[in-house]
Design a protein around this nucleic acid. Structure first.
Lengths: 213, 213
DNA sequence: GTCTATAAAAGGATAGAC
DNA sequence: GTCTATCCTTTTATAGAC
């Protein structure tokens, strides 16, 4: 906004370093010194570009949030089949997650640390939260049945896609005995598997099947 | 281990306070002063009982981890149907989550902050990570088909169950415009809905259905 | 065991030279 | 714009009286 005519090199180096450190350690865990070191610059210069830790963090988090959230909008515009939309949505997410695996944990930590800020974030990133689900609703309601809330379906898909990244260290240990490469393969399988499981879960069944036990 | 003959009142008060503060703010966000205040005790006494912040945190996290992880073991022993096991597993988790809604975010934050510690945690809590999935495997493999990795199914179920708690602030805002009570109802619906969706996702389909697009 | 007071260290932010 | 040196607040941890 008011930092116009500076060397773009340093600012970008700082942002890159801040991205890395903040995403790895979270706001409270991050140290300005570490960001400075990572950027190969002094702490003072860091404060010169971004007045405070909170301001710098704000930049990083806004950016991350923006990447993470509105990804749906563009994808959901056309009138392809629900299955196609699902595939696209999930593949786009997985592509993002492969490049930024710590993004889910970063976002989740922050929104839990400061839930009030979510409203402001939507404003700043220009996303209307109500509009996120809207493009999916028609085809979802049609496929999911009127008696079931389509929000459950949406949450299921997002959960299945994102959770394996947020819980990676634990799942990798339990399911693959710590073999990271095996877990990578497991993750890549899911870009096919999750849409399939999601579509199968849409199938109508008579509700009588369910014993109350 | 070596704190035997003290007033159990104070120690327990401290642990209770620490549970609350650590789970809400995480390790780095928590302040010893806040824990002391919450416990109605002085900071010095706090250090008297638990030598350091890290030691105190260790107690809390070990406990949380223990609650969260080995819950499967007992439930999965019998030879009931897969569907029954699913219901039980999910209901048990949801009961836990309703009592401790910030547990998922707490665990996820920590294991990402210090993934190396997972091995030690399993040792200390006496859980064998390999044994967690074992009781489910026979019935899972049978229902899921030999050509599909049953770990995907397990991850799907856990993800659908836990994720809505970890991502609550965001989902509550997007899906229910911030209406917390509506989100509570939504969550409670899922103890029925998730097992149903999970069981439906087991149904075999010929793989030809899937266009590569 | 519990407290007040204080030490000791860490970490964010600024001053001022270059 | 960038650095070194320094300030100042916060926070963990301890000393020592009661």
């Amino acid at each position: 906004m008011d930092n116009i005519n500076q060397d773009p090199g340093s600012a970008e180096k700082i942002l890159e370093a801040a991205r890395k450190v903040f995403q790895q350690k979270g706001y409270h865990g991050a140290r300005m010194q570490e960001i400075a070191d990572e950027a190969g610059i002094s702490k003072a210069s860091l404060h010169y570009y971004f007045r405070s830790k909170e301001k710098l963090f704000g930049e990083i988090f806004r950016e991350a949030f923006g990447q993470f959230i509105p990804s749906m909008q563009q994808l959901m515009g056309g009138d392809n089949s629900l299955e196609q939309k699902m595939h696209w949505l999930i593949r786009r997410y997985i592509a993002l997650l492969e490049e930024h695996p710590s993004l889910p944990q970063f976002i989740l930590s922050e929104i839990n640390r400061d839930p009030e800020s979510i409203g402001k974030l939507f404003l700043e990133t220009g996303v209307r939260p109500e509009a996120l689900m809207a493009p999916l609703l028609p085809s979802l309601s049609a496929a999911y049945g009127k008696d079931r809330d389509p929000r459950h379906f949406l949450v299921n898909v997002v959960a299945m896609t994102i959770f394996p990244y947020a819980a990676r260290p634990l799942l990798e240990r339990i399911l693959f005995n710590g073999d990271g490469e095996a877990y990578d393969r497991f993750l890549s399988e899911r870009s096919q598997l999750v849409p399939e499981a999601a579509m199968r879960s849409l199938s109508q069944k008579d509700p009588a099947q369910n014993s109350e036990l």
